[in-house]
């Protein structure tokens, strides 16, 4: 079984986890136009490099971040969301490469 190194629970079988999509900054709730919400909701990274992704450990109810290669499936790094760079979740950020 593929192993996911969970920042909270240590290495666990990948079947204990759910994929939660790409980590993208949330549009400004008060002012973002519909087009920005559509972009945020429906468009995400689908390249052949490393993606920064949300993952959820189901048994412990814990969300964290994994950096995973979309061709080799290698998990390069996992960490608690508190360690995300400050601009990763607000709307001023460039797309993650």
């Amino acid at each position: 079984m593929k192993i996911m190194p969970c920042p909270l629970n240590g290495p666990r079988n990948i079947s204990e986890f759910t994929f939660g999509g790409e980590v993208t900054p949330l549009p400004d709730v008060a002012s973002a136009p519909d087009s920005e919400w559509a972009e945020h909701t429906f468009y995400s990274y689908n390249g052949t490099g490393v993606a920064r992704e949300w993952w959820y450990h189901v048994p412990s109810g814990y969300w964290f971040v994994a950096e995973r290669h979309r061709v080799t499936d290698e998990i390069l790094r996992t960490y608690d969301p508190s360690e995300l760079p400050a601009d990763a979740l607000n709307n001023q950020q460039e797309a993650f490469q």
């Binding site: 759910t18 994929f19 689908n46 052949t48 992704e53 979309r70 061709v71 080799t72 499936d73």
Partner: peptide, 8 residues
């Protein structure tokens, strides 16, 4: 489909 995206 598989549970997460992958080009493989």
């Amino acid at each position: 489909s598989d549970p997460y995206p992958l080009y493989n």
